[in-house]
Design a protein around this nucleic acid. Structure first.
Length: 797
DNA sequence: GCAGCCCTATTACCT
DNA sequence: ACAGGTAATAGGGCTGCG
């Protein structure tokens, strides 16, 4: 049979090894909108032996070739030149048929005389395949294929199985067929504490598809066997490309798997008759489909303080919080068992799934673009930490440039100096412009050619091309040739600029615009994380002077900028790392920008202009009023997630009265009234909840703290808590330390709450933060005792 | 026993 | 499991106090 040309969009990749022969499985969608599997048996993987500098490559080659018989699945040794941190090295590339034997082989071969170490022996086979062939998940490719014999196709749920007869090649093509997306959420039944799959059933499994189907499977008399079977059946018949949920990696899939196991069901929801399994970065993999946990993308939105499904949906404009039916976990049994309330629980479950579908609509393009840019499969990209995303992007580029990927090593943490922060001038300032340097750190790295491979250690002689010498820290970087980071960052910045240019001429509502906008966002995320990556001790390409020199240049630039502003008659009010806050005078500011760009070589632009701005004495905390009347609150309690809503609301009102009405007295009166309301418990209970993250196991704390004690109470009630969970608690009346009076909010009632704590420790400090600028004292904020309240007070005894 | 002081642990923010 | 710089609170140890 003649091979035919096949074009396909790559959804997922996995590999299998049978009798030491590996197969790459490429799951894709072809031009006819068919789901296809292409099996490639031709790719031989490899790793490198790095040789000692005093050794001749031929000698070491002889030594390893001599021992080849010990390594049955090694096919070839290939001497090559490669770069490591910019230095040319002699290496031997060791080709190995069975990827699973590489750890064993590399360990043995690293002990051969003349071999310094092995490199790239820790790159997964499937990633090696994609990188070496220039392939990207969520991108189009072209390959010669033959139809695979029928025997295999029976096990695989797919339109057609092919075997690759050529190396797949990436092709440029933007449009995609619409993916089939299935979203689901579950509700479990537990009378007390967290549901346990060994004993508590799933009572509702709610499913939706992007073809508009919605289904709710219910348990019958707390028996969820039929529910799970119906779910499996639906997945099979709809045959989704993408499966989505919220918290599914850690929760739902584990629960479903454990329930299935105890009920004797095989949870076959993939395309190859295997069960979901946990894999790299802790993502749950469903062979042939992309399983996406939208919770993994919540980190992209720091404005969402408590990362619940409803908060994320609210933030992304899927469904407003006020319109949602919210039922706490503790209430599930009550709602399920009461026939009058059950419909509300069903509605809640359905809304959860709708939120999931809506969030994916808002984020799916971004996820796919990030996956394509970084090169990690769609089901892994969300789960991979920022550092690993950057690292995979670098790894791909290193391959193209003949740079070896360094090994991951443990290093001691030694801090270095970061950005410069100015003490602000306290008070209210009129007409203030904020100018900031665009992508300051990446641009410094480019401008000064800062990179792991351009760094010249103190022991090395100055290269002929000369060096850039960092201020203060005196690290040196060769001027020529352009470094690894220089090239990679220049490409990223140029690509983003290009996209933004194209976007200007497109219909903002069009599909092309959505995809391009998602792509430029993905590029921005990787670009912005590059400096942090460079300073991360866990980074493969970590060289401390790289990060240290970048911030040193940054400090020098901002100081220079401040000096220049002053010399040009501009008053500098504040500055942080890459920004300066100056008095706004259009002509002077324009002139100033030009001078700076000329002097420093980096672009500086007015980001915002405030009609007025308020600073206390603290750095990193201010509130500016934009010309449209909108308030921009930075760093203050209002934007913090660990203050009760009461404190945040009052502070925001105070700021408004101060900045818009310029009336401290109105602000004081407002606080008085608020405190009276609070004491009367006329403020919603949920506004009293304080949320704090559990950052270590409850026992690991050196001191007792309210949220930790609240967490212990939760655990006693049977709730599982893990590091990273947010604990919502309230302070109740009683004696002793605060931590003795903290209670999880859903285990306490409003009449137990110590409202005086909220007056003294929440509302007053948050208000005073602003009002002390106007000489207002704590006493001034407590409501004056009117005769009525005094009377009430005396009557109480 | 507790107010006052100082230091430390902890969290969440800014760029 | 991307960086350092910063503010703020509560805990906890200590001193001094009839």
């Amino acid at each position: 049979m003649e091979p035919v040309k096949k074009r396909f969009w790559l959804l997922d990749v996995n590999y299998e090894v049978k009798d030491h022969s590996p197969e790459i499985w490429l799951w894709g969608i072809d031009e006819e909108n068919k789901r296809i599997l292409i099996i490639d048996r031709s790719f031989v993987t490899y790793f490198y032996l790095v040789l000692n500098e005093d050794e001749k490559p031929e000698t070491v080659l002889e030594r390893v070739v001599e021992r080849k018989s010990e390594f049955h699945y090694i096919t070839r040794f290939e001497p090559l030149k490669r770069n490591l941190f910019g230095k040319s090295l002699d290496v031997i590339r060791v080709y190995c048929l069975d990827p699973d034997l590489i750890p064993k082989y590399s360990k043995a071969l690293s002990k051969v005389n003349g071999v310094r170490k092995c490199l790239e022996d820790d790159i997964r086979y499937s990633m090696r395949y994609l990188i070496d062939n220039g392939m990207t998940p969520c991108g189009w490719h072209e390959v010669q294929v033959e139809v695979e014999e029928e025997s295999k196709s029976s096990r695989i749920q797919i339109d057609k199985v092919y075997s690759a007869k050529s190396v797949p090649r990436r092709i440029e093509r933007e449009e995609t067929h619409p993916l089939r997306v299935l979203g689901f959420s579950i509700i479990c039944y537990s009378q007390k504490g967290a549901p346990k799959p060994e004993r508590n059933p799933i009572i509702i499994l709610s499913v939706a598809t992007n073809s508009g189907e919605e289904k709710e499977f219910l348990s019958e008399n707390y028996d969820d066997k039929g529910l799970i079977e119906s779910f499996i059946e639906l997945v099979k018949s709809f045959d989704p490309d993408v499966v989505i949920g919220y918290g599914t990696n850690r929760q739902d899939w584990q629960y479903l798997l454990n329930r299935s196991r105890s009920l004797g069901i095989n949870l076959y929801v993939d395309r190859a008759r295997t069960e979901p399994h946990t894999s790299v970065y802790g993502h749950v993999s469903i062979t042939g489909r992309a399983n996406i946990d939208l919770l993994d993308f919540a980190d992209e939105f720091p404005d969402i303080k408590v990362k619940t499904l409803e908060n994320m949906a609210d933030y992304l404009g899927v469904i407003k919080l006020e319109k949602r039916t919210i039922i706490e976990d503790v209430e599930f049994p009550e709602y399920w068992d009461d026939p009058n309330k059950r419909p509300i629980l069903l509605k809640f479950a359905k809304e959860n799934t709708r939120c999931i579908m809506g969030i994916f609509e808002a984020l799916g393009d971004f996820a796919a673009q990030l996956s394509q840019l970084v090169g990690l499969p769609l089901d892994q990209i969300g789960r991979a930490a920022v550092g690993f995303r950057v690292e995979w992007y670098l790894t791909r580029n290193a391959y193209k440039m003949g740079e070896l990927v360094p090994e991951r090593t443990e290093r001691p943490y030694i801090p270095y100096v970061g950005g410069e922060v100015l003490a602000p001038k306290p008070g209210i300032h009129e007409n203030v412009a904020v100018l900031d340097f665009k992508s300051m750190y990446p641009n410094i790295m480019i401008e000064q050619n800062i990179s792991p491979d351009t760094y010249i250690s103190p022991s090395e002689p100055t290269p002929q091309s000369g060096v850039n010498l960092a201020p203060e820290v005196k690290h040196r970087f060769r001027k020529e040739p352009p470094g690894f980071y220089n090239i990679v960052l220049s490409n990223l910045i140029a690509a983003r600029e290009d996209i933004r240019r194209r976007l200007r001429n497109l219909d903002p509502k069009g599909i092309e615009c959505r995809v391009l906008d998602a792509r430029q966002k993905a590029i921005k995320v990787i670009t912005n994380a590059s400096y942090g990556y460079a300073g991360w001790i866990g980074a493969r390409w970590y060289i401390k002077p790289v990060a240290e020199a970048t911030t040193a240049w940054g400090r020098s630039i901002i100081r220079n900028t401040i000096e220049t502003a002053k010399n040009n008659g501009l008053d500098v009010i504040y500055g942080d790392t890459d920004s300066v806050f100056i008095t706004y005078d259009q002509e002077k500011v324009e002139e100033f920008s030009k001078i700076i760009e000329k002097k420093i070589g980096l672009e500086i632009k007015p980001d915002k202009i405030y009609s007025c701005i308020l600073f206390t004495e603290a750095k990193k905390r201010y509130c500016g009023l934009l010309p449209n009347g909108q308030m921009d609150i930075v760093g203050l309690e209002v934007v913090r997630g660990d203050w009760a809503e009461v404190a945040k609301d009052v502070q925001e009102q105070v700021l408004e009265l101060i900045l818009k009405e310029r009336s401290p007295s109105k602000a004081v009166k407002f606080v008085h009234k608020f405190i009276l309301n609070l004491r009367e418990r006329r403020i919603p209970y949920r506004d009293l909840i304080i949320w704090k993250t559990l950052t270590k196991p409850a026992e690991g704390y050196a001191v007792k703290a309210p949220h930790v004690e609240a967490a212990k109470l939760l655990r006693k009630e049977g709730w599982d808590l893990t590091v990273g969970d947010k604990i919502g608690y309230v302070i109740v009346t009683g004696s002793g330390r605060l931590y003795e009076r903290a209670k999880p909010y859903f285990l306490a009632s409003y009449n137990e709450v110590d409202v005086e704590y909220y007056v003294t420790n929440q509302v007053i400090p948050a208000s005073l933060r602003i009002l002390s600028l106007f000489n207002i004292k704590e006493e001034d904020l407590l409501p004056p005792k009117s005769s009525a309240t005094l009377f009430d007070f005396m009557n109480k005894d």
